[in-house]
Design a protein around this nucleic acid. Sequence first.
DNA 1: AAAGGAACCAACCGCTGCTAG
DNA 2: TCTAGCAGCGGTTGGTTCCTT
Length: 237
Amino acid sequence: MAGYLGWGMIEEGWRKGPWTAEEDKLLIEYVGLHGDGRWNSVARFAGLRRNGKSCRLRWVNYLRPDLKRGQITPHEENIILELHARWGNRWSTIAQSLPGRTDNEIKNYWRTHFKKKGKAASEHAEKSKTRILRQQQLQLQKQQLQQQQQNQIDMKNIMSLLDESEHRAQVRQEMVSMYSNSSEEQCLLSSMLNSEETLNDDILWGGLWNLDDNHANMDATCATSKPSLPSLLTPFY
DNA sequence: AAAGGAACCAACCGCTGCTAG
DNA sequence: TCTAGCAGCGGTTGGTTCCTT
């Protein structure tokens, strides 16, 4: 069954080697009509003597219309280095962060530009890891700060609703004592409790429910004492 | 100008995981 | 539950182009 051998050979009825313009045209036409996927069907019905794997590879790596041509930019190179430091040789994962670039392209680029540089690349990778960790820490701190601010706003809203609750006086006192470590915080809360006038019991008790969750989820560092306002960091969802 | 090596890139291979029967 | 078929992934190969001597 095998035909002639060599580059561009036919083996077991399938052609191998470089694709011709005619084959590309057939594949593009077929995918345009029927969409990609079902690569064995493509191979069978598009009039190509290529197996499904070969068709898929040609489409994904070369014919796809959204592919970006041209050299890898320094910015893309940095992204590759960063992501390789994070994920290793997970080329397809890395490629997802570089629109228009294929895993094969990134893999080839890495091999030619960084693999041989060994030490330099690994040093860069180490630096990248350190930088990524630092960025993650900063991001976490930022998120915590934002959450803290949001929680203060939420607390204020809840307190304003409390004002109109038929149990407001009792609950207010409970809240002040529960969530305040210092006399300053107690003053702040008391003033907040007395300043707003809105009513929505659903929101109110929903919010208090979340506050209870926050309280329950509080980590060990906070668990030893009453939670101060800034410690109410857990999200309201 | 020619030869040799390096770099680049398209394509293949083997393996893995998923899914339908 | 098992199995076959398939898609996708990472590693590798080999042809071509570019650069250096």
